[in-house]
């Protein structure tokens, strides 16, 4: 099964939008590298709509107390409710605990279209 979920020009790097894939509500994100990623639009914690959150960066883990190195701007999807951070370029893994991840879908680009497929 494959489905066009948006056009490539619909999103600039660092932007996201809601779409559908079959019966699933999904969020399509365009990362800082220009690539597209798609996830179920539902946070694994309490089900918030992720598309209402923020595609932003995150302070990198550091050994130095008090140091904020804000990196990966546009690659981290933060939930609109409790703010958990998910790395869209790493299968949607949660930064605080990589064992957990939001559900991701396979994505390809073809002729100006973003396609999600199974």
């Amino acid at each position: 099964m494959e489905e066009v979920v948006c056009r490539t020009e619909d999103l600039q790097p660092g932007e996201m939008m809601e779409s559908r894939f079959g019966k699933h509500e999904i969020v399509v994100c365009r990362a800082s590298d220009g690539h597209y990623y798609a996830f179920l639009n539902r946070c694994i914690h309490q089900g918030a709509p992720l598309s209402k959150g923020k595609l932003c960066g995150a302070p990198e883990p550091t050994d130095n107390l008090g140091e904020y190195k804000f990196e990966r701007d546009g690659d981290i999807l933060r939930c609109p409710w409790h703010g958990r951070e998910f790395d869209i370029r790493n299968k949607g893994c949660m930064l605080a605990n990589e064992k957990f991840k939001i559900k991701n879908f396979k994505v390809m680009e073809k002729n100006d279209e973003v396609i999600v497929y199974k």
Binding site: A48, G53, K54, C79, P80, W81, G83
Partner: peptide, 11 residues
Amino acid sequence: QPAVAGVDRAD
């Protein structure tokens, strides 16, 4: 700063 829209649900 707690969450993405301060102390409120962003949505």
